[in-house]
């Protein structure tokens, strides 16, 4: 009985850790511009598919990952320079729509360059699962959790301790004021997209051994990741992780104890409830009305 519970819990953590890592990617750009970057899933895809492509060229996995992450950063910066910057005076909704367009474009390019097949990324530390109290845990989930934790701490430190991080936050709070105190807001935005792509691609390659990777994996992952981010409170790193794991565990428990038919329904109802009572999410900041 207990081993069953443990198994559902482990499954939930595995799924949830994936959502959490994806959700984290949304925070930086949101913090910089209040834009929800719908091309975030494509950064994940570039991380995973890039690694597969570079490994296919005979490059060792570690370096292939670094190259893929660099590639994603370039794409992120290019996205900001070529698509977001020309529309700098547009409002947030327009920018969000631009990111949707960009995501379709990137996906199309990836489909042509890398093909349409699913690919495997080898797990970072072997295929052998960890056995604990009669249940099994995928060793890659620990990597996902660990990297998630490192990224959360790095994000918190970045936004509170570094000048650039505070410049990003400042830009999102009041663009004009930030400009007046000497923040180059376009530069900040470009940096935010680059960093966000870095985060996304690291997440993409870390979850790829669990989920596989393909040109369209971004849509699948980003949807649940976005839900997790919204539940945790957009812009909060800790919120993204808690939201993701909560979502994963609820899904797994529902699939285990109620019925797998209802798992998405239960998860989404929970989100509705959370957002109904806490519209800013579990860890979202207080709403401040600017007059």
């Amino acid at each position: 009985m207990f081993s069953e519970f443990l198994q559902y819990l482990f499954t939930g953590i595995t799924i949830g850790a994936t959502y959490a890592l994806v959700a984290l990617g949304f925070t930086i750009i949101y913090n910089a511009s209040h834009v929800i970057n719908f091309a975030q899933g494509e950064f994940l895809m570039i991380g995973g598919m890039g690694t597969v492509a570079f490994m296919g060229l005979g490059i060792p996995m570690f370096f292939a990952i670094i190259l893929a992450v660099l590639l994603a950063c370039l794409v992120g910066i290019a996205l900001q320079r070529l698509a977001i910057a020309p529309a700098k005076n547009a409002d947030v909704v327009t920018l969000i729509i631009i990111t949707i367009g960009a995501s379709i474009f990137i996906r199309g390019i990836a489909q042509v360059v890398w093909g349409k097949d699913y690919h495997v990324v080898p797990p970072f530390s072997g295929d052998e699962p960890i056995r604990l109290g009669g249940a099994v845990l995928n060793s890659q989930s620990l990597w996902v959790l660990g990297i998630g934790a490192v990224l959360v701490i790095a994000l918190i430190l970045f936004f509170t301790r570094t000048l650039i991080g505070r410049a990003i936050l400042g830009t999102s709070m009041n663009k004009l004021a930030a400009q007046l105190v000497g923040v180059k807001t376009q530069m900040v935005l470009m940096l935010a997209f680059g960093l966000s792509a870095l985060l996304g691609s690291v997440a993409g390659v870390t979850v790829a051994p669990i989920t596989f990777t393909a040109y369209d994996i971004g849509i699948l992952l980003a949807l649940k990741g976005f839900v997790a981010a919204a539940m945790g409170g957009l812009g909060s790193g800790l919120g993204a992780v808690v939201g993701g794991i909560l979502l994963g565990v609820v899904e797994a428990m529902t699939a285990g104890y109620i019925s797998s038919e209802y798992k998405d329904a239960v998860a989404f109802s929970m989100i509705l409830l959370v957002l109904f009572f806490m519209p800013r999410g579990l860890f979202g900041g207080r709403t401040v009305e600017r007059v």
């Binding site: 559902y8 482990f10 939930g12 799924i15 989920t211 949807l223 699939a255």
Partner: peptide, 16 residues
């Protein structure tokens, strides 16, 4: 048991 098209782990269903 069933699973959705974007699910990344079906351990719970298989355990059942």
């Amino acid at each position: 048991e069933t699973y959705g098209p974007s699910d990344s782990d079906m351990t719970a269903q298989l355990t059942n």
